[in-house]
Amino acid sequence: MTPDAIERGTKWLASADLRPTRQRVQLAALLVGDGQNRHVTAESLFAASVESCEKVSLATVYNTLKAFCDAGLMREVVVDGSKSYFDTRTDEHPHFYWEENGALEDASADGLRIASLPELPEGAELSRIDVVIRLRKA
């Protein structure tokens, strides 16, 4: 892992006042170290950490991703109710989900219009709307 990647990861953690533990810095560097946004699963981030020779357990990866989401550094995108992706881009935006290979990618919000919503149950407030557009090759 490059010193630049570690520095970016450390600054990313500091932006959310998260304590920079060794594991958090390592995972943050893998997530944002190159300055690009990405979508990962816990399993894919764990595999990347193994490839980079970083010693982090899968349970630590899950716990760290949850902490990053709780701190507002990432957003969880649930696909099929059973598969979660974690997105380093935290603004409101839709996603394309490719059914054949399970890839998740950002979609443009241009042209997306949500004209109305059903009436919310009493005592509820809207938290957010997730739009996942499922695709398969024609």
Rank of each mutant, 00 (worst) to 15 (best):
R22M: 11
N63C: 06
Q36D: 11
R8K: 12
R8W: 00
P3L: 13
D110N: 13
N37Q: 08
L117H: 06
P118N: 10
L45V: 02
V50P: 02
E125A: 14
G9W: 02
G35M: 07
Y85H: 09
Q23R: 12
S82R: 10
E92R: 10
G33N: 07
D80C: 01
D34A: 07
Q26C: 09
A67P: 00
A28E: 04
K55N: 10
K66D: 11
R22W: 04
A42L: 08
A14G: 13
E43L: 07
A109E: 15
W98H: 12
T60I: 04
T10I: 05
T10L: 10
E105Q: 13
D91W: 06
L18Y: 09
A29M: 06
V131R: 12
Q26R: 08
N101K: 06
A42D: 15
E119N: 13
A5V: 03
T21R: 04
P121I: 06
E51T: 11
L27C: 12
G102P: 05
I114M: 12
G81W: 03
D110K: 12
L31K: 00
N37C: 03
A14E: 14
D91E: 10
V40D: 13
A109W: 09
A29Q: 09
C53Q: 08
L104S: 10
A29S: 15
I114Y: 06
V40Q: 10
E51I: 07
D87C: 07
S108I: 02
L73I: 01
E99P: 01
E7P: 00
R19D: 15
